[in-house]
Amino acid sequence: MKGYHDIGGEPAGAIPMQEHEMMLWEKRVEAMLLLLSQKGLLRVDENRRGLEAVGAEIYHEAGYAERRIQSISTNLIAKGLISIEELAAKVADIEQRSDVLP
């Protein structure tokens, strides 16, 4: 069964030509991925597998950094590096803070 990421040869629309400069948070997602990989904590292949499990909607409709942070989070939970409880508490905290955006 073909995965939703395995799209080589499928029909698709025009190539979107507009340039998009990455925002700081998007670069931080890439930085975390690279650092976790360098530390041997999350391999590139594990992240790819995670991307193949975020669901077709997020994979194709969300942005690049968005689907990648979703995959990183799921992988870190599966590895026990962060717990769902900690993540939930942190997100709730972030929603109450005013200092989180640049």
Binding site: Q18, E19, H20, E21, M23, L24, W25, R28, V29, M32, L35, L36, K39, L41, A62, G63, A65, E66, I69, Q70, I72, S73, L76, L81, I82, E86, L87, K90, V91, I94, E95, V100, L101, P102
Partner: peptide, 29 residues
């Protein structure tokens, strides 16, 4: 370059901040 919606705290941006802060608090990064 596009620089919009940098000020919207979306589900995914909250996730990025949360994961980064947790990894730093734990000494992973």
């Amino acid at each position: 370059p596009q620089r919009d919606h940098d000020d919207t705290l979306t589900y995914f941006r909250k996730l990025e901040i949360a994961v980064r802060e947790l990894l730093i608090e734990k000494g992973v990064l």
